[in-house]
Design a protein around this nucleic acid. Structure first.
Lengths: 135, 135
DNA sequence: CCTTCCGTTTACGTTAACGTAATTATTTGA
DNA sequence: TCAAATAATTACGTTAACGTAAACGGAAGG
């Protein structure tokens, strides 16, 4: 079994964050490395959690929101009430994500238009230059 | 021409934010309402800017980033250098947006899986209930 | 005339998510 | 063995994006 562990600086450099950031996540209860003497030791599970948290950050989620989403994954659901509430939570989150995709698509469309104008403007200059060089 | 204008509370309620928020955006130079006496008067252009800023927020952009993106639209570009730099900016932003879409898709996939488990769990209970009711 | 709504200004408060020392231990390679 | 690198703890600092409260001005309605 790989059962690999990681030091704090390994994870920090892998994910492009500072060790301070990772310790901060621990303060907030987002990860729970164990200790070898004084040093923190991170499991593969910790690593995944950090990865998911950073993914959340990229799409504008707070740390708490990311944790909530991550926690949806662990199947500590017993009764029907909890299951129904979970389904609700998921569908709400899903709606927000779809909205975000729409927002992104809109923005991408806008950027494409601007890009088109840019290239058009540059094209004219190239023609001028070509004409100049031919003479 | 419609040439419509808006009061601060109209915009606030339309977009579901407080007037404080809109005044804050003005402090930061994101909008420039003119005055009628003391009162702020917003143009359609101001309205659009606010809309775009809030769109940016939904996908995790800072106010400054939103402004930068919005400013890409106004064609105050003169020389080739500026055009090339603009193209660069656009392609970087585009890359980030595509990354975000991937992140969202990953998260949606995860949520679907959890949802599947939920429904499976609920299904079993329904069977039990059905069986109970038949007896 | 008085109150009730907007609206404005000024200014201090708040939360999230780290940054930035300063100080102290531990380990490790020259 | 000594210095350099790596880690930990403690604690104050910072930025963004508003919230909240106080204090005041015009206007509209009963």
């Amino acid at each position: 079994m790989p059962n690999q562990t990681f030091t704090i600086s390994e994870l920090a450099s892998e994910f492009g964050v500072t060790t301070r950031t990772i310790r901060f996540y621990e303060e907030k209860g987002l990860v729970h490395p164990f200790r070898e003497g004084q040093k923190r030791v991170y499991t593969a599970a910790d690593r995944v959690r950090i990865k998911l948290i950073l993914r959340g950050k990229r799409i504008g989620m707070t740390l708490q929101e990311s944790v909530e989403v991550i926690d949806l994954y662990d199947p500590q659901r017993n009764n029907t009430q909890q299951l129904l509430s979970l389904i609700n939570t998921i569908s709400e989150r899903r709606a927000r994500l779809l909205q975000q995709k729409d927002d992104i698509d809109d923005m991408l469309t806008g950027l494409s238009e601007v890009l088109g104008l840019c290239e058009k403007a540059l094209g004219k200059r190239q023609k001028k230059i070509s004409a100049t060089q031919k003479n």
